[in-house]
Design a protein around this nucleic acid. Structure first.
Lengths: 185, 185
DNA sequence: GAGTATGTATATACCGAGTATGTACACCCT
DNA sequence: AGGGTGTACATACTCGGTATATACATACTC
């Protein structure tokens, strides 16, 4: 749903398909390359749903699209309504670990360590980009910061998983599998 | 790709479709409800690709699926290879803010505040779940922790966005838009 | 100047993820 | 006997995303 709304928002003034992709990638700092084909399929769906309409061609013969009234309302609604986090995105890594701890043949500790290496590498890549000046323009910089914050959280979570796994392993050998410290309820 | 591999991993022993969904949801602590239909479509694709095969029916007449050799190798490969974070998931919230800062008619500060409220509420929901004992079993607990860590990072990022937006607004009125502190390079 | 790489611009085919819906059967309850 | 609920499987459909094809202009080069 994100691409759909992003394109709508970029259509504050009439634009053509190829331009929309360029605008999208410029703003997101090329962190998420957007396939051109998706722009056109999305535009035709938006046209079908009455949110955009073809607005003739420009001087170079490129076919322009513009928002309808319904489209303007949709954009406003998108910005006025927060992104739903009560039913969060499926996360492959969390699923992987959740499944792994229940499959006896898997060395979960190793999975965690390898993932930390991979995420750490991605994080260093983001920081390098930020230092090289890619984070200086505002929109792209915010996206880059987002990736940094998310990667740091992922690494913290992986550390947390390791310690929790160690505790679980210890308590499974001990007779009483009770929480060590006094967590009230 | 996450569901596909998760189902493969759960097929360490022969299971039937409905059972796979139940196992998946139990392990992920019902954080990500899985549509049964997707289990069957995924299974038929996996069968087409030679990763699973129909393994007769059990005593109650339910049709079982089991891993082929290629399927076992696929599972092993999944656990041995970290989740790719160099080309990260598209994130609707980041896209929204990146687009919003470039659209003059949008009050970005308000968007940030509303989102913080929404994320904060989600976070409190996760903590309530954790306190109520949903986080006590290991796999579901790890998933819940993951959601908590991610929500906290999101809130920190939103705070960071606010201060960065304030700085940008200040420097756009001031003549010299230079970084305040000495960032080497 | 013919040939060929490169960039711009649009369009379509295809696949996988995910949702909604339909059907059948067993069980329980009143 | 009828109605609700849970189990089990299957299929239709939409959407997100990738790959590919086509057309045209520019630029480079042998």
């Amino acid at each position: 749903m994100s691409v759909k709304h992003a394109l709508l928002a970029l259509l504050e003034k009439p634009r053509y398909g190829y331009e929309l992709r360029a605008e999208f990638e410029q703003r997101t700092g090329a962190s998420w390359p957007l396939n051109v084909g998706q722009v056109y399929t999305t535009l035709s769906r938006l046209e079908r749903d009455g949110l955009v309409e073809a607005g003739g061609t420009d001087a170079e013969g490129r076919s322009l699209y513009q928002l309808t009234e319904a489209g303007q309302a949709e954009v406003k609604g998108w910005f006025d309504t927060p992104v739903e986090r009560t039913q969060p995105q499926r996360d492959e890594l969390a699923i992987k670990l959740a499944v792994a701890v229940a499959v006896p043949s898997v060395d979960v500790g190793k999975v965690v360590q390898q993932q930390r290496n991979a995420t750490m590498q991605a994080l260093q890549g983001y920081r390098r980009q930020a230092r090289s000046g890619a984070g200086d323009d505002l929109p792209g910089g915010l996206v880059l910061d987002r990736l940094v914050f998310a990667a740091e959280a992922e690494i913290r979570w992986l550390d947390h998983c390791e310690s929790r796994l160690r505790r679980a392993a210890a308590s499974s050998t001990a007779p009483e599998p009770v929480q060590p410290e006094g967590e009230s309820r």
